[in-house]
Design a binder for these strands. Structure first.
Lengths: 199, 199
DNA sequence: GTCTATATGGCGATAGAC
DNA sequence: GTCTATCGCCATATAGAC
């Protein structure tokens, strides 16, 4: 609470932008959330676009680095996959709207992606490198590990992104029941991935 | 092309709304797409909100009914699961932005969900009914089939929703390679689900 | 640095001629 | 039914007092 004005703006902007996206967010709403006048937002950040980019870049690189870091070191070691799943599902649970926010913005304005990757110190080529070693599947055929990663992320993110619909039709809008469902997924997803890789 | 003015508006609105969402879409842009003046949009549909709801209700019920119909009759028969996956991945491929569009709107305004479910003739209770029969998992413990459905949808939708990012970091922005990757997923997802249910 | 007041532009919506 | 012109509002952005 004794943080600087700029930090207050940043935190408020992060909250509003993640909830409503670039289009849906209002500068007035961010100013209210930060407890100040909206003129100040323009004093510290020149424009809405600027403020948004500052926030987005930060969120993107934080989440992305976490995925990259864990996967880079652990994806080949099957026994460590479970640790990643536990960590990442907790990370999403603590920031439930972030993955969808990122997905929306990379679709809304894909041009920012390349610069963002670069500025974040993330090098696509190095990440691609971890897929040079292919995974042996059950019947002996080669298995593209990218399918594993995409399946994994899809299984983790979708229950959060589709929550309003899923919670309503499958859980009669019982919030607690859905939370328990989310917690169960750690084990479920773990088993699904491992069973597919191992057997 | 010889369709009525109202149909032209509807088709243009569908295209723009799906691409940009309710907030991002502009009435002017829809009018341009339909090849007419924006005053006509208000003549046929009273407001942007009206036009959007007409489009959204239609898209939602179409996609949802397709999921419901197929799952209701086929999820218990494991050997038919593959048919569903093939059909649904083709459906998404033909409408790649629709799932994310639906997810965005149910999160933006969850209130419309209940009325939409009702007006579409979809009854949540009946859908819940198909989960009364639980699935036996490998080690003999009971397995909540809702996890299967959520995993399945997540694995199918995520590669489309996250395409800009995934295509860039994993495929060096090679569009054709990514299309092939999407096609491979039919088999991959099929195997993942079946292996998890059967074994 | 922080505020109030205002400029500026864009968008949804409407009026009214044809 | 379809168009042009315009209203009224709201959001971003700025000017200027303190």
């Amino acid at each position: 609470m004794d943080s600087s004005t700029e930090e207050k703006i940043y935190e408020a902007a992060r909250k509003i932008f993640v909830l409503k996206g670039m289009e849906g967010a209002r500068m007035q709403e961010i100013a209210d959330e930060a407890g100040m006048n909206k003129a100040l937002l323009h004093y510290y950040f020149r424009s809405k676009e600027n403020l948004f980019k500052a926030v987005f870049k930060d969120i993107f690189s934080k989440f992305f680095t976490r995925v990259k870091g864990t996967l880079l070191s652990e994806i080949t070691a099957k026994e460590k996959l479970g640790i990643f799943i536990d960590n990442y599902i907790d990370l999403i649970a603590a920031n439930p709207y972030v993955p969808q926010f990122i997905i929306n913005e990379i679709n809304r304005d894909p041009k920012v992606l390349k610069s963002l990757m670069f500025e974040s110190g993330i090098e696509p080529q190095k990440i691609l490198g971890m897929f040079l070693h292919e995974v042996e599947s059950a019947n002996g055929t080669k298995l593209d590990p990218r399918h594993i990663v995409v399946s994994l992320l899809g299984m983790l993110i979708f229950p959060f992104a589709g929550r309003p619909l899923l919670q309503m039709i499958y859980f009669n809008d019982d919030v607690e029941a859905y939370n328990q469902f989310l917690n169960e997924r750690k084990t479920i997803v773990k088993n699904m991935i491992l069973k597919f890789i191992e057997a």
